[in-house]
């Protein structure tokens, strides 16, 4: 073991986002796809969603993108042997960019 193993790491926070995104994606995403992708376009159900729905959607989008970024980062790191210091800013940066797009579209 080397001494570098003792330094502080941002991984717990990134893992919580990854973990939360995984739960959200598994539990909520299929329901949202059903409501917004199938039922609403078919005119089934009440199209007048309360205004706070958009905030919930923003949280869902952010967590799902963070989950995807984390998974893509580690997949590329281990398959292509690319360094985390290069992959992490790109992966999480794209997740943040996607969230900004969601903010512009929804708010």
């Amino acid at each position: 073991m080397t001494t570098k193993a003792k330094r502080r790491t941002p991984e717990p926070y990134l893992w919580l986002l990854f973990s939360g995104g995984g739960v959200i994606a598994a539990l909520v995403l299929p329901v949202l796809v059903l409501i917004f992708g199938v039922l609403a376009p078919l005119g089934i159900g009440d199209p007048a969603f309360p205004s706070w729905t958009r905030w919930i959607l923003l949280i869902v989008v952010f967590l799902c993108l963070a989950h995807a970024a984390h998974r893509i980062r580690f997949t590329l790191a281990e398959t292509l042997r690319l360094p985390h210091r290069l992959l992490a800013p790109v992966a999480y940066g794209l997740a943040l960019a996607g969230t900004v797009v969601a903010v512009i579209a929804l708010v």
Partner: peptide, 14 residues
Amino acid sequence: FDVLSTDEGVWGCT
């Protein structure tokens, strides 16, 4: 915690 919660500890596991 200081040994396990590191990049080479649990956070290295995928």
